[in-house]
Each structure stands twice: as C-alpha cells, then as structure tokens.
Amino acid sequence: MAPVLTPVLEKSGPTVFTGPLVRSAKAAVVAAGPNLAKLASREILSRRGLAVTSDSQRTTLGIIGAYVVVIALLWNLPYVRWSLWPFKMLVIAFHEFSHAFAAICTGGRVKSISLDPREGGVTHMLGGMNFITLPAGYLGSSLIGALLTFCGFNIVASKIASLVLGVCFLLTLWWGKKDWLTILTILLAVGLLVACWFIAHAIALRFAVLFIGVMSSLYSVWDICDDLILRKVNSSDASVFAQRYGGSSQCWGVIWSIISLIIMVAGIIAGIAAFPQSFAQQVEDSRNFLPTR
C-alpha cells in the first residue's frame, strides 16, 4: 500500500503592501467613499421605487409641507378659522365614524353621532372595548388621511377619492349641526370638488384631495391643540383615555400624534412608490378616465 502523503502547509504572517502607490489607492477609496454611499443608496431607492424622480412628485411633496403650515395656522387663528369649517366637519366625521366602526367591531352599539366645527364631534356608544374605541378615532382618521394623501399623488386616484369624499360631505349634513353657515360651507366644499374636476383635466382635484388628506392625517395634532389651548366643549379622546387608564392627556396625545405622523409618512412613501408619472403622463391617463375639459 502506497504511503499517504499529507501535505504540510507552512504558516506565514499577513502580507503587508507598502509604498506610495498603495497609499494613493487608500486615499482614493476614502475620498470616493461618500460618493459611493450616495450612489448605492440611490440604487437601492430606485430598485424599491422610492426615488423622487418626476416633477409631479417633487411638487406634491412641497405642497404637503405647505399644507401642514397653512392648516396649523388656519386651525388656530381667530376670524379665519371659519374657512376650514367644511373640511373640519369632514375630518371630524372621519374621526367619529372611526369611533363608531371600532365600537361595532368590538361588540358595541352606536346610539348617536353629532358633529360641530366649533365644539368638535361626539359619538354616543353602548358597550364595546373602550381601550380600542377611544384611540380608534385618531388612528382611523389618520389612516383615512394617509389613503387620501396617497391618492393625492395621482389624478385618476384623486378622481376616485373625490367621489367618495363627495358622498361623505353630504353625509355630514345628516349628523352635522343644522345651522345655515355649516350647511352653506359644506355645499360650497362639494361645489369646490366638482369645480376642480374641470380645471386643467382635474389637476386641481389632486391638490384638493391632498389638502383633505393632510388635514385628516394630522387631526390628532389639531385636536390636542384644541383641547389643551382652546378648550373646546367636547374634551378630546386623550383626556377621556387618561381618566380611565392613567397617564396624562398630553402623554397620550403625543403618542397618538406620533403614530399619526408615522401613518402619514407611510401614505406619502406609498404614493411616491405607486405614482412616479409626470404631470403630462397623469393628464393623459386622466383623459381616459371620466374625462373632463
């Protein structure tokens, strides 16, 4: 039997390269590092469809930022606050409908819903799980707002959303306070949505839907401001939740506001990923779906 030869491997230390050429290579890698990182991140975003590449996306993001500032001012400034009434009524309706939906899903029953742009809304319920129904108003309106913000990135999606919004506006007349100013402002808001259909092939409709989406997404922030600063008649859900489960209304308000912001950001990211089309492409698509002049 032939002997089995086992190779012997000699251990050696690591090879160290030195010299000006190596030092130059190291310097080049260090200098190129940030640029390589940027290129890599762009490539990852492009693969995931999250790159902001079109004029439509950039404009929409800028308008979202402007809406946040404008709504915050109009919501709290006296004398001009009334300009938000129809939209505020709708957002309050989303909030109260979310309470009602959560109550029904947890075995409760809804007795009545009332809406008032001055005093806020209130939903009278029997049964249900309060731990779920109380935050459902904020989180539900935030989810609806995120969906509308998502639709606000595209004309065709905004057309579909506006049909639902029109019905919701009219439903608020049933539960809303029956005074002439509320009725008039809601009808004007419905008229505004209809008019936006006929402005530049419904491009204006996109921004109307986007406005309502941003306002609804951040309703928890606006409502906490109302409760802590303006002291409206109907206390916020955060106050009731704090009374029943401990903590402070400010604490729960901040927590729910952060969750609302996260939901809103998710809607924005989804809109960027789903609708990369330019304005020209969206107008062309809009002409093939319930076309208007």
Rank of each mutant, 00 (worst) to 15 (best):
M1P: 05
A2Y: 10
P7I: 14
L9I: 12
E10F: 10
S12W: 14
P14R: 15
T15H: 15
G19H: 11
P20T: 07
R23S: 12
G33W: 13
N35Q: 14
K38S: 10
S41R: 05
E43L: 09
E43R: 09
I44D: 06
S46P: 02
R48M: 11
L50Y: 05
L50P: 04
A51W: 11
A51R: 08
S54G: 08
R58S: 12
R58V: 08
L61F: 09
G62Y: 10
G65T: 07
Y67P: 03
V68D: 00
V69K: 12
I71D: 14
L73A: 06
R81Q: 14
R81H: 11
S83G: 11
W85S: 05
P86E: 02
P86T: 02
F87I: 13
V91D: 05
I92G: 05
F94Y: 09
F94E: 00
S98G: 15
A100S: 08
F101T: 10
V110P: 01
D116K: 06
G120Y: 03
H124L: 13
M125C: 06
G127C: 04
G128E: 02
G128Y: 01
M129C: 05
F131D: 03
P135K: 04
A136Y: 01
G137Y: 02
G140N: 05
G140Y: 04
S142C: 07
L147S: 03
L147F: 05
L147W: 00
F150I: 02
V156P: 02
S158W: 01
K159Q: 11
K159E: 02
A161I: 03
S162N: 10
L163V: 15
V164R: 13
G166C: 03
G166H: 07
V167T: 11
V167K: 02
F169D: 00
W175E: 04
K177E: 07
K177R: 14
D179M: 06
D179E: 09
L181T: 13
I183E: 11
T185Q: 12
I186V: 12
A189S: 09
V190D: 00
V190L: 01
G191W: 10
W197H: 14
F198H: 15
F198Q: 12
I199T: 13
I203V: 08
A204I: 11
F207P: 01
V209I: 06
L210N: 03
V214Y: 06
S216I: 00
S216M: 01
D223C: 05
D227N: 13
D227M: 11
L228D: 08
I229D: 09
V240C: 04
V240F: 08
A242M: 02
A242F: 05
Q243K: 08
Y245P: 01
G253N: 07
V254N: 12
I255K: 10
W256C: 09
I259V: 08
I259C: 12
M264F: 14
V265H: 14
I268V: 07
G271C: 04
I272V: 15
I272W: 06
F275K: 00
E284G: 13
S286A: 15
